[in-house]
Simulated assay, not measured.
Amino acid sequence: MPTCSARRTPGPRAVPGLKLKIAGKSLPTEKFAIRKSRRYLSPKPISLPIPALEMMYIWNGYAVIGKQPELTDGILGIITKAEEMLKKGPENEYSVDDECLVKLLKGLCLKYLGRVQEAEENFRSISFNEKKIKYDHYLIPNALLELALLFMEQGRNEEAVKLLETAKQNYKNYSMESRTHFRIQAAILQAKSSLENGNRSMVSPVSL
C-alpha cells in the first residue's frame, strides 16, 4: 500500500528560486525576502535574528498589534531576548545591521506601550550607527520616519517635518523604497496640514 510522504517546507536557501514575476516585474516584498536570504547561501551562513518580526514590520503589522498591549508586550519580550543574544554572540559582518533592526522593532513596541522616551532613544540609535550599516540601509530612513511619527503624536510637527524631509531627500536605492516614500509623503502632508491649522496632529498608525 503506498505511503504518503510529508511535504517539505522550502528552507531559506530555496528562497531565490521561488521568485515570481507579474507583468515582467518581481514583487518588492519578494525582492526583500531574497536579499535577506542571501546570508544563508554563504559557506558559513549567519541566521537572521527575528525574520518573522521583521517581515511583520514590512507589512505594517505593528500598527495593528500595537492596539493590543498584551501582544505588544509579548513581542517586545521576544525582541529583547534577540537583542541579548546578539550582545552575547560573536561579532560578524551583519552585527550592526542586526542590532539596528532590533532597535527599530523594539522602538515600535515601546511606542505603542506608551514608553515614549525609550522609543525615541531606540530610533535615534540607528542614525548614530548609520555609517556602520553594511546591507540593511532601509533601516535608516525608516527609523527617521518612525521617529517623526512619534514626534507628530506629541505635537512636535516642525521637528517631524525636518526628519521626514531628510528621510525623503537623503536616502535612495534601498529595500522597499516605494513603500517607505509613500508613508513619508503621507506623514509630511499630515504634519504640514497640522501646522497650518495650528492643531496637534492626530496620526493614524494604520495608514502611516
Rank of each mutant, 00 (worst) to 15 (best):
6 A>Y: 00
7 R>Q: 08
8 R>D: 11
10 P>V: 09
10 P>S: 09
11 G>C: 05
11 G>I: 05
12 P>C: 04
14 A>G: 00
15 V>H: 01
18 L>M: 14
20 L>A: 11
20 L>F: 08
21 K>D: 09
24 G>M: 05
24 G>S: 04
24 G>V: 06
25 K>T: 10
26 S>T: 15
26 S>P: 01
27 L>T: 00
28 P>N: 03
29 T>D: 04
30 E>I: 03
32 F>M: 02
34 I>P: 02
35 R>F: 05
37 S>P: 03
38 R>V: 02
41 L>S: 10
45 P>F: 02
47 S>G: 09
50 I>F: 07
51 P>Y: 09
51 P>N: 08
53 L>R: 03
54 E>K: 00
56 M>K: 07
61 G>F: 06
62 Y>C: 06
62 Y>V: 05
63 A>D: 08
63 A>L: 05
64 V>N: 06
66 G>H: 03
68 Q>F: 13
68 Q>H: 13
70 E>N: 11
70 E>S: 14
71 L>N: 03
75 I>P: 00
79 I>L: 15
80 T>D: 14
81 K>G: 01
82 A>G: 14
83 E>L: 01
83 E>T: 11
89 G>E: 13
89 G>T: 06
91 E>V: 12
94 Y>I: 09
95 S>P: 01
96 V>I: 15
96 V>C: 11
96 V>A: 11
97 D>I: 08
97 D>L: 07
99 E>G: 12
100 C>W: 08
106 K>H: 13
106 K>M: 07
108 L>A: 00
109 C>G: 04
111 K>A: 09
118 E>C: 01
119 A>L: 00
122 N>A: 07
124 R>H: 08
137 H>T: 09
138 Y>H: 15
139 L>P: 10
139 L>Q: 09
142 N>A: 02
143 A>H: 11
149 L>R: 12
150 L>F: 04
152 M>Q: 10
153 E>D: 15
154 Q>L: 11
154 Q>G: 05
157 N>D: 15
157 N>Y: 02
163 L>P: 06
165 E>A: 08
168 K>Q: 13
169 Q>K: 15
171 Y>E: 06
172 K>Y: 07
173 N>I: 02
176 M>T: 02
178 S>K: 14
180 T>D: 06
180 T>L: 07
180 T>K: 05
181 H>R: 12
182 F>D: 14
182 F>H: 13
182 F>R: 13
182 F>Y: 14
183 R>I: 08
187 A>K: 02
187 A>Y: 07
188 I>F: 02
189 L>N: 15
189 L>R: 15
191 A>P: 02
191 A>I: 05
194 S>Q: 11
194 S>K: 09
194 S>L: 04
196 E>Q: 15
200 R>L: 13
202 M>L: 14
202 M>P: 00
203 V>N: 01
203 V>S: 02
204 S>G: 13
204 S>V: 13
205 P>V: 07
206 V>R: 10
207 S>V: 13
208 L>T: 11
